[in-house]
Design a protein around this nucleic acid. Structure first.
Lengths: 335, 335
DNA sequence: TAAAATTATGCAAACGTTTGCGACACCCTA
DNA sequence: TAGGGTGTCGCAAACGTTTGCATAATTTTA
């Protein structure tokens, strides 16, 4: 025990027994006498023995660790996801390594490689906005490391998936706006190569179609962050007088839109209604409180972890499945 | 290479050389001929060889991993901290294992143990609200694993620390309120066993003292979350008519207070002014926008990681130091 | 041409575990 | 008293690396 950490063989030496005896004694193996068990365990406790997870992982060829790659931890949705993952993982004896891609393709690839190097048993991934190529995930798949995609999923790779019913959520919220009498709904859309961006866009179109409102390309702006909104403020302000509602692909952009409109003397919801997506806590705190679509991050994280751990243990070869969480409308004061 | 992952000895076997040759060839050791290097590296690339970090860690007795324990990832401050830590760590070849204590003492202890088991090279910690006993950190210290405390620090353990000047921040914001003419300032305080809670409280008192405003115990409420605020709403509403300002220990509580007051027909800032601490993004988004104290989470995380890595490499035995970030007042519409 | 130096490679130990198998020393039974 | 059973324990291999040292072949030097 040269440096702080006692090993099994330190204990063996100190007690004059073999390492195998110590190893067995520590887990109350029936081969070992009670007397020896007691002595070993007592000594182990005295020196604060803690098993070396690396050595274990090496031996057992599994690390009991799952890797998580999410775009940005600062978004409430993703931090809820992480909490869900952690709770489920810890409860099942797994550890979690969390990485952020920062919406960056290169960083995502680096993260994947780092997690592979660490021999994680499985991967939980929500892909970055700027990821168009999925070969790094294909690599993971070829290594027989199971992946569960979550929210921002990838349909190229055979895998389990956990998603919100984005299509239905968007359809619901837009239908709600139409029921309020809106005819011209501006959609601040997300990237169309992302499942969530596309599905919400299509839900928007579906709602229009169902209500016989003509679709107008001009009323769709690719704009999914407050920063982007700000850089397109003139365009938005030019459209706003003609529009009677804004549906943003997420709550942050919706709130930013609300502020922009309010600063320009629009009254919400009187002059123009605003809705978001995700039910970030901010939605309930701004004034007027934001109508949005609930997205259960914690539950989705938990479920994704459950599916992954399941595949790691019980049914390795079960058919892949996609779990879809229903979307619930949260009507507040902004619509 | 039975299961997906090729090892060094798989390469050795395939190429008819020894594992030591492969190991050296992979890192361009001068002992190995160019020819062999080329062959080995080419083959390694073909089979997607990636070194087993566990085996490496075992051999080298260091994992190039640092463990992070923070209370709750959903708080913007802490997720910024994490981003700062990650960027610095990745840039220096370190990996990061992130754990949440969820403000729970037991969970914090479990996290510490898990990170010890994983043989992290060092620890970055912001202690939980419910941690009164610090023996689990003393254990870490005895194992000669360096710790850097961050924001919520612990003075019992010899270690580096990174903090905000909470005292000064609170003094500034309260002074600002007094300059606005306030005389009765309600303080929604944090736990007094936490450095941040105590320092902000004392900053509040100091500001009063400097301005010859009598301190009144009745105007200090231990209440640092929206939930707690809600359960004490009657108490707050009883005090509000007599008070002319509220200073909350964090922005979430401040915003919750604003909403409570607004719902009860108080005008902000006309009837009562409200200030928070931390400059959470929500502070800029609510109306009126919240006056608060800036706290540079990203930079603090980066700095903490830098200090830790420094201690891990260069100067193991340098004297411990505490880095204090200055606090800046952000005056907005709520005061 | 023998000795010395150089070049390229392999052996084996070590890191901390787990685990199949074999080795004892007993005690019991027939 | 020989055979078998049982209760305790140790040996050694294996997991994937790195690295000091030995080895062998080749070249250089004197």
């Amino acid at each position: 025990m040269k440096s702080g950490q006692a090993s099994i063989s330190d204990i063996a030496k100190a007690l004059g027994v073999s390492v195998s005896t110590v190893s067995r004694a520590l887990k109350n193996h029936p081969d070992i006498s009670e007397e020896t068990c007691r002595k070993v365990q007592e000594y182990a406790r005295r020196v604060h023995y803690s098993p070396n997870a690396m050595a274990l992982a090496l031996k057992q060829k599994r690390s009991l660790t799952i890797g998580v790659i999410i775009p940005e931890i600062i978004h409430h949705f993703f931090s809820s996801v992480i909490s869900g993952i952690e709770d489920m993982a810890y409860g099942s004896g797994y550890r979690v390594m969390i990485c952020q891609s920062n919406e960056d393709y290169l960083r995502e690839m680096i993260n994947v490689q780092a997690l592979i190097d660490h021999r994680v048993d499985g991967l939980l991934v929500s892909i970055s906005k700027n990821t168009l190529d999925h070969n790094h995930f294909r690599d993971v798949h070829q290594r027989e490391i199971p992946i569960v995609f979550l929210d921002r999923v990838c349909y190229d790779i055979p895998s389990d998936r956990v998603i919100t019913n984005d299509f239905e959520g968007a359809r619901l919220v837009v239908t709600h706006l139409l029921e309020r009498g809106c005819k011209k709904i501006l959609h601040l859309a997300g990237p169309q190569h992302l499942s969530v961006g596309r599905d919400r866009y299509e839900g928007y179109r579906q709602a229009l179609k169902e209500n016989n409102i003509p679709f107008d390309e001009e009323y769709v702006l690719r704009c999914d962050t407050p920063v982007k909104l700000n850089s397109r403020r003139n365009q938005v302000l030019a459209l706003a007088p003609k529009a009677d509602a804004v549906f943003a692909v997420n709550d942050f952009t919706a709130v930013a839109a609300m502020r922009l409109l309010q600063e320009n003397a629009f009254k919400i919801p009187e002059d123009i209604r605003v809705a978001g997506f995700g039910d970030d806590p901010i939605a309930a705190m701004v004034r007027p409180a934001l109508t949005t679509v609930e997205q259960r991050g914690y539950d989705m994280g938990r479920e994704a972890a459950r599916m992954l751990i399941n595949r790691l243990t019980d049914d390795k070869d079960k058919a892949f499945q996609t779990k879809t969480y229903p979307a619930f409308l949260k009507v507040r004061d902004s619509t």
